[in-house]
């Protein structure tokens, strides 16, 4: 009897915890964007003159897009970053139900939008109800649902999840073309290059270049962002050297390896307040790392440095890097 009672309690407990997990997700739903809906619907009607169709090449083939898309749904943060630079506001965004993951500089530009849920499992039905006329998706996360997406609206698929800085710039050009702002995109890209050149000029180059290591740290592990990652390749573009050389973008690294990599500077992106680094600080080896000895361990925002893979995100992180390194 008591055993049966226990089983029952157990079942109830875990069903509740399951509900909790679900509620946690839905209660964070970003506010829907009623304001955007009517204007979006009326806009195409106001311009009866159809513009010429153009073909946009992307990772899953070619997609024909006509005119200027007005109701765009994007399935990753980086695409929202790109739209923000072009003055375009998406009607829908997969934001993992947490608008705080978007860097403020992007969030204020994209205005209100409807969250279509997790970037990994976007809500296709909700997405479809937004009546999009363009969907921008990621190769890694959304390849499997491409067929469904393209039935809803013209869809372009870009390699974002695995992208390094160079690939991100290529993606940007494709997005600009898809939203019919190729010229504006080109102009913005020139501005971007100028901004980064300015940052680069402030940093030591050549033999004096700094050996840096950006890394995401959570309670269970230290994940170096290697030269193949977005953050690592951006820092290398700025003339620094990523201490972790790997084909893999985010190799898991232990303290022994970190000591061997011995970076001059550490940029730590914490996912939680308490991380594995707090444990490592108790080990005398931690103090033998050059970055620690020189007091060059910096905490930076993961949202800015790793999630907002776009022009705005990279400019912000480049500027932050130079500010931290030059002490200004």
């Amino acid at each position: 009897m008591s055993a049966r009672l226990f089983s029952l309690c157990f079942l109830i407990l875990f069903t509740l915890s399951g509900l909790l997990a679900g509620c946690g997700a839905s209660s964070q739903q970003a506010a829907p964007a009623p304001a955007a809906a009517p204007s979006g619907e009326s806009a195409p009607a106001a311009e009866p003159a159809k513009e010429q169709a153009r073909t946009v090449k992307h990772e899953m083939g070619e997609t024909e897009i006509t005119g200027t898309p007005e109701r765009i749904v994007v399935l990753d943060f980086s695409f929202a970053d790109a739209l923000a630079t072009l003055g375009v506001q998406p009607v829908g965004l997969a934001d993992d139900n947490d608008p705080n993951l978007i860097v403020p500089e992007v969030k204020e530009k994209i205005g209100t939008y409807t969250s279509v849920g997790s970037r990994y499992e976007p809500n296709i039905e909700l997405l479809s109800s937004l009546n999009p006329d363009l969907i921008i998706a990621d190769l890694n996360k959304h390849k499997a649902v491409y067929d469904k997406l393209k039935q809803i609206a013209p869809t372009i698929v870009l390699n974002d999840h695995q992208a390094d800085y160079g690939q991100m710039l290529k993606n940007y050009t494709v997005i600009a073309e898809a939203v019919n702002k190729a010229d504006a995109g080109k102009k913005r890209l020139e501005e971007h290059n100028a901004k980064l050149a300015e940052v680069k000029a402030k940093l030591p180059q050549g033999d004096a270049q700094l050996k840096v290591l950006p890394a995401v740290v959570n309670p269970t592990g230290f994940f170096a962002h290697s030269n193949a990652s977005y953050a690592g390749s951006l820092l290398e573009y700025l003339g620094m050297l990523d201490a972790a050389k790997s084909q893999e973008a985010y190799p898991k690294t232990n303290l022994e390896q970190l000591v061997a990599l011995n970076p001059d500077v550490l940029f730590l992106m914490k996912t939680e307040d308490k991380t594995i680094v707090d444990e490592w600080k108790n080990n005398p080896l931690w103090n033998q790392i050059k970055a620690v000895k020189d007091g060059k361990v910096f905490e930076v925002s993961r949202n800015k440095w790793a999630l907002s893979r776009g022009l705005i995100g990279s400019e912000l992180s480049a500027q932050e890097a130079v500010a931290l390194l030059t002490g200004k």
Partner: peptide, 18 residues
């Protein structure tokens, strides 16, 4: 249930997989 947690909170759990 573990899967559900991971799915709904991907950004904080993706590195739990290790």
């Amino acid at each position: 249930l573990t899967e559900a947690f991971i799915l709904f909170h991907q950004h904080s759990t993706d590195q739990v997989l290790f």
